[in-house]
Design a protein around this nucleic acid. Structure first.
Lengths: 199, 199
DNA sequence: CCCTTGGTAGCATAGATATTCTAGAATTAG
DNA sequence: CTAATTCTAGAATATCTATGCTACCAAGGG
């Protein structure tokens, strides 16, 4: 019944992601997104209440695209434990280059600033909780240990380590080469062997 | 003979670093730095030609503070090779919290944009070259291999890995806890053992 | 004591940018 | 065909920032 949209939320968030990965989140201006999407500025305000909101949505949408698959990988049993999860971000980066750059090269804090509408605060909070819980669960199953230290170790293995290995490539705008998977696998295996040797 | 300065270059760069780590490089505006330093805006233009210059100087100064010590650590023989270098960034972060946050949480590209005055381009280029050479040299001495892959592996071990392990703490505004050193040491040792097992 | 040098102070200007607002366009139910 | 609804368009306004500019300040040498 209504006029069909030319610029959906999704279209505009895509454009916003591209602006951010090209010039950093600081360069996300309404004008820049409008140019990137080929839309007039007014159309952006039709979908988003403010620049701040759009910036936050950009982050939340990218994280929401990444996280479910990652959590599945986290629950998958692999040998050594965590290998499947640690490889997931690298593989995901190949199929989602823009969103991956956003997530790896910047931080939540660069996008989600002060006051946000309920919907976004809730979405962001839910994502954080889900991820934290999934990692804790993994730490218990992998290390049989529910201490904070075990969770930190798990976070390092499955997130920080692969991100570190990819970072330079994503910064250069290229997909992570095959060697990254090998390096990650080697590191996870090495650390797993080292710790089981302590038993 | 002249009037004694109230705001030196150093003062202002310090303030700029603090602005960046608090709100990201995008928040580095002349006004923000002026407020942080307690100076009027005009005083900043007395020292720096433009906002872009100040931003670039902020990065160059932080990197220049980090790099010499790191290079010394890189040349230091340790067992396994690279352990001393990999631990250096973590220790340095404890004594230089603001500069470390800047270097770990953001990238050169977020600071050093397009056109820069000769002095800065040269300083930035020299830093990059020195670091690259030092890492290559380390890669040869540690792995006996001057391939690009060896250099990438070395970079991962001594820079990306420790940065990844610290990142969350620096983002939260706290110094890296002792567990980080242990994790880094464990990872470097594990990977060194794994690769020597291949011989 | 005055002049020179390097500095501070902060208002004034120009250019961006965010945000608002009004007019009109595209659809379909009735 | 018309009303109701959702959207596009983009000009107009309000803010924010970077930068330029002028007046004035402090110290030491002559």
């Amino acid at each position: 019944m209504p006029r069909p949209p030319r610029f959906t939320r999704e279209n505009l968030i895509d454009a916003a992601v591209r602006v951010c990965v090209q010039n950093g989140p600081g360069a996300l201006t309404i004008g820049a997104v409008a140019r990137m999407a080929g839309a007039p500025t007014g159309s952006i305000y039709h979908r988003f209440a403010s620049r701040e909101d759009l910036l936050a949505e950009t982050w939340v949408a990218s994280m929401a695209a990444f996280q479910p698959g990652f959590i599945v990988a986290l629950r998958q049993r692999s040998e050594p434990p965590g290998l499947a999860a640690a490889l997931f971000p690298v593989q995901w980066a190949r199929s989602h280059p823009d969103a991956a750059r956003l997530l790896v090269l910047y931080r939540r804090q660069d996008f989600v600033g002060g006051e946000l509408p309920e919907r976004l605060r809730e979405a962001a909070g839910k994502l954080a909780t889900e991820l934290g819980d999934a990692i804790s669960e993994f730490a218990v199953s992998a290390f049989g240990d529910q201490s904070l230290a075990a969770k930190q170790r798990a976070t390092f293995l499955v997130l920080d380590l692969p991100n570190a290995a990819m970072r330079r490539y994503l910064a250069a705008g290229i997909g992570p080469p095959q060697g990254v998977d090998e390096l990650v696998a080697e590191a996870v295996t090495a650390m797993s062997t080292a710790s089981s040797a302590l038993d």
